[in-house]
Design a protein around this nucleic acid. Structure first.
Lengths: 247, 247
DNA sequence: CTCGCACCAAGTGTCGACACATTGAACGTG
DNA sequence: CACGTTCAATGTGTCGACACTTGGTGCGAG
């Protein structure tokens, strides 16, 4: 994260490590404070969350606390807590007296979430235009530069995570911490099908252009334009998933 | 809830019971499914949540699991789960290795939440105009009739809860269950300072008029108007709190 | 009298154990 | 052979116990 300015000649592995750290950071940024209780439960939660998001733990896969307890060399108590945290993020379903299992996401649900995201990112842009300083907007420009580099290199994964970083920075610049938290929570769900959202060719180019126009709208303090672009960016992501036909 | 049609001559006590039931229903509507695990933990959660919302458990009040376990005649395990559920709703704070306590809400935080609410209720109205049938909009008209009755009777408490019911029905008619859930969760926080929001005289009249115009906008399928009124309704609530100066 | 340190009560996080619910299979019956 | 019943295995929800931490108290030194 730090000292990335002008890092033109990064090795591939260093870059991958950077990306991994960024990913960790962004996935759980909202939950750092909400850490809950023990770090043990949180560690298990993080492990499982990553597994679900990455697809290692597929939907409908049963996650019983006894087996996980053996696996993590702990008692069932922290595992139970972790499962409840996962339920809060809608990553697993814990039916009473029945075995918990990894939740399944229907396209209709994805659409519901994107509707909310579009609305909230519209709000983010609205607030940002009003509250962010020029220096802060410049920080967005930095992120955009990274996106440009990724797009030119055809680095889809890098583009995705830098995009998340861009969005997260926007949320933080809105000055509404509550909003940032809620969006991050929604984001955790999103990451489960990001691979779908990235598969379509040409998507990067369009997305990149929109990001450029968005930053410009911020610099110009053009609320209406910023809100419109911000929302359309979200919708573009949804349509990519929809068209991929994989859900 | 059921068979309320034309109930003109209700006794006061019956009315109060009705309101209590409506309150329970609306407070936890979003969490019914998310019930989590055991009904025991959920029962404790509900009890504490009501206590916090009603003000019986004031902010910064320590809620330690040992004492609660004694009080509820259970072990500490379900109490811990309940505390984690409360943390998820931002009603308590559970610092690691430290005693949990009832969370405190600053005015700035209230504003943040209202900003989100305004945005999301705007979305609700937008979706509702598109998707709700005329019969469903008629149901909103029923709620509005109740509000009118409450306003004429000067029944502030009744007005408040019927208003929540109106809003909740709107959310359900948006056809976006995820949205309804998130709004309900935000609502749980809101109810903590509802008394502030109702204190100002003249508020009922203004609010009532807005509700009337909102339902009409729905019937006319006037998106822009509906969204504008919906948002302004939320903001009116915030300004009431702000002006009350009690935070 | 103030400050620092040891000490103690109280509380948290974690554990292993137990009763009950659920699930799936073996089993007998129509 | 289909189908309902019985039964064991597995898993959940809950419990009481234990080690470690935390916060406060009192004591002694300066």
């Amino acid at each position: 994260m730090a000292a990335d300015a002008g890092g033109l000649a990064e090795t591939v592995s260093a870059r991958a490590a950077d990306l991994g750290q960024l990913r960790e950071e962004l996935l759980f940024s909202a939950l750092r404070g909400v850490d809950g209780s023990s770090s043990l439960a949180f560690a298990i939660f993080r492990e499982l969350a990553i597994g679900i998001v990455e697809g290692t733990l597929p939907p409908c896969h049963e996650v019983n606390s006894a087996e996980l307890a053996r696996e993590f060399n702990t008692s069932r108590t922290p595992v139970r807590e972790a499962l409840l945290m996962l339920e809060r993020e809608d990553l697993v379903i814990v039916p009473p007296r029945r075995r918990p299992y990894v939740s399944e996401v229907a396209l209709s649900q994805v659409r519901e979430i994107y509707e909310i995201r579009a609305s909230l990112y519209g709000l983010v842009s609205e607030l940002l235009v009003d509250r962010a300083s020029d220096e802060q907007i410049a920080r967005l420009h930095d992120w955009q530069a990274k996106l440009e580099k990724d797009a030119q290199a055809g680095d889809v994964d890098g583009y995705f995570w830098h995009n998340v970083g861009f969005r997260n920075t926007e949320a933080s610049l809105s000055g509404n911490r509550e909003l940032q938290r809620r969006l991050s929570s929604l984001g955790l769900q999103m990451h489960r099908f990001r691979h779908l959202s990235l598969s379509l060719p040409g998507r990067l180019i369009n997305s990149l252009a929109d990001h450029g126009r968005l930053v410009r709208a911020y610099a110009d303090r053009d609320v209406a334009m910023a809100v419109a672009i911000s929302r359309s960016l979200v919708w573009r992501g949804y349509r990519a998933i929809e068209r991929s036909g994989l859900m």
